[in-house]
Amino acid sequence: MISTSAAWLAFFLFAGMMTFAGIRDVATMTIPNRLVGALAIAYAILAPVAGADLVTISSSILIASAVLVCTFTFFAFGWIGGGDAKLLPVAVLWLGADLALHFVIYASVFGAALTLALLQFRKIPLPIVLKRTAWSNRLYAPETGIPYGAAMAPAALLLLPESHWFSALI
């Protein structure tokens, strides 16, 4: 019973925090370190309580660590933001080694669609109603980049039902 409750808590916590990260990234172009840290700590607590075995946990940590090395290399070259470089490996940690490649591919596809949409959005004049809001001006400005947290969130939500969290619920 405890493992099922922990799996439900983990399932909704991860879904909610990823959704918040995506929305926050669009609104502020930042992903808070506290959010990423809270996700990492929550995984460390909830994974064993929810019944994840040592192989699942250790393989998730190993793959997430490899992804962290890659994303921080991308960050060092200026290809992605720091929040994106931290959120991606934490999402991989939660989804597990089996879904890591799928997640990266889905996030890339959603990220490409988001990039194309923003490039088109930035070509048209910003409507007056949107000129009055800080978040839309930030999103409209080409120098602010792309809020990839908004691409990672739906990718994670799409794969979450295929994860070990969901299998612990049934």
Rank of each mutant, 00 (worst) to 15 (best):
F166Y: 12
A40V: 14
L119H: 12
T144V: 03
I80C: 07
T144S: 14
L87A: 00
P32V: 00
N137F: 04
A97H: 14
A66T: 10
L39I: 11
W79D: 08
P48H: 13
Y140R: 01
P127L: 06
L68T: 06
A113Q: 07
F103P: 00
P147S: 02
L35D: 05
D84T: 03
I63N: 04
S136L: 10
I80W: 06
L119K: 10
A42R: 05
T28R: 15
R132F: 10
A150D: 05
L158H: 13
G149F: 00
Y43H: 11
K123E: 13
I23K: 01
L157C: 03
A50C: 05
K86R: 13
L62W: 15
A151L: 03
P154D: 13
L88S: 13
I23L: 10
P125F: 09
G96V: 05
L160F: 02
F110A: 09
A100H: 02
H164I: 15
A27L: 15
I57V: 07
F72S: 00
W94M: 04
C70E: 08
T144Q: 11
T56W: 14
I41S: 06
G37P: 06
P89T: 10
L139D: 00
L126P: 10
A153C: 01
V104C: 09
F72A: 07
F74L: 15
G82V: 03
L54T: 14
G82K: 06
A66I: 14
V55K: 09
P32T: 12
G111Y: 02
L95E: 01
I63V: 15
R122K: 07
G96Y: 02
A40N: 08
A155C: 06
A76T: 11
V109L: 15
A52T: 04
A107F: 02
L101D: 10
V129S: 13
L116S: 12
L68C: 06
T133R: 06
K131R: 15
A141K: 13
V129R: 14
V67P: 00
P125C: 07
S108L: 12
A156Y: 00
A21W: 00
V129T: 13
A134M: 11
F103D: 03
L126F: 05
V109F: 14
I41H: 06
L68A: 14
V26F: 09
A85M: 01
Y43A: 12
T30V: 05
S136C: 14
L101N: 12
S163E: 10
K86F: 03
S58V: 12
S163W: 00
A21V: 01
L157Q: 02
I45E: 00
T144E: 12
S60K: 11
V109K: 07
I45N: 02
